[in-house]
Structures are given as structure tokens and as C-alpha cells.
Amino acid sequence: MKVIFLQDVKGKGKKGEIKNVPDGYARNFLFKKGLAVEATPANLKELE
């Protein structure tokens, strides 16, 4: 799953980066803790 990092995550990505991460990791950790959002067209547009 492609995500946009909202904060630096040690060993995974830095704020503003767009990266592919495993689905479970994204849903169960990154999204729940507010560290990233899914890289949807709407979210990508907001990032610009």
C-alpha cells in the first residue's frame, strides 16, 4: 500500500515521503498512530 508519511518514522520514511509499505503495517500501526495516510489522489493533491 502506498502511504504518505506525516511524521518521520525511524527506518521506514521521513515526513512528506511517499512509499510502499505492507498493508497490515499501514493499517495497524501507521494509520492508527497518525504517522501516515493512504496515498489517494485527494491526499496527494493536498501534499502539493
Rank of each mutant, 00 (worst) to 15 (best):
V3N: 01
P22E: 11
E17G: 02
Y25H: 04
V9D: 01
G16W: 11
V21E: 03
E38H: 07
L35W: 13
M1A: 05
L44M: 11
Y25S: 03
L47R: 08
N43Q: 09
R27Q: 09
K14I: 09
K12A: 15
K33W: 15
Y25I: 06
E46M: 14
P22D: 12
D23M: 15
I18K: 03
F31E: 02
K45V: 10
N20Q: 13
A36G: 04
N43Y: 09
E48Y: 13
G13Q: 02
F5D: 00
K10R: 13
A36M: 01
A42E: 14
R27F: 10
V37Q: 07
P41D: 13
K45A: 14
K32Q: 10
G16R: 03
A39L: 08
K33D: 07
L44S: 06
A39W: 12
K2E: 09
L6T: 08
L44P: 04
A26Y: 09
G34D: 06
I4L: 11
V37H: 04
N43H: 10
G13Y: 14
G34F: 10
E17A: 06
N43W: 08
D8T: 11
N20A: 11
E38D: 04
G16L: 05
K45W: 11
G24I: 12
K14W: 09
L44A: 05
N43F: 10
A39E: 02
L44I: 14
K19A: 10
L47G: 06
E46W: 15
I4T: 02
K12E: 11
L30H: 00
V9F: 04
F31Q: 02
E17R: 03
K2N: 11
L30D: 00
E48A: 14
K15I: 08
P22G: 08
K14Y: 12
K14H: 10
G11Y: 09
G34P: 01
N43A: 12
K19Y: 07
L47M: 12
T40V: 06
G24A: 13
K15R: 12
M1P: 03
V9M: 04
A26G: 04
D8M: 05
N43P: 04
M1S: 04
N28D: 13
Y25L: 07
L47S: 07
G16T: 02
K15M: 08
Q7R: 14
F5W: 02
E17S: 06
T40A: 05
K10M: 12
F31H: 01
E46R: 14
E48R: 11
N20G: 07
E17L: 03
F5A: 00
M1R: 07
Y25N: 04
V9N: 00
M1I: 15
F31L: 13
K2L: 15
R27S: 04
A42R: 11
K12W: 15
E48F: 13
K19E: 02
E38L: 12
K14S: 09
P41W: 13
F31A: 02
L35V: 04
F31D: 02
N20W: 15
Q7S: 09
E38K: 08
L47N: 08
V37R: 08
K15P: 04
K45H: 11
G24E: 14
L6W: 02
K32D: 06
G24S: 15
A26N: 03
K45Q: 12
L44Y: 06
K15G: 04
K33L: 15
I18Q: 04
Q7E: 12
E46Q: 14
T40E: 05
V37P: 02
A39V: 08
V3L: 03
M1W: 06
F5S: 00
L6S: 03
K12N: 09
K19I: 10
K2D: 10
F29L: 07
L35Q: 03
I4A: 03
M1F: 07
I18T: 07
K15E: 05
P41Q: 12
K10L: 13
K32M: 12
I18P: 01
K12T: 11
L6Y: 03
A26P: 01
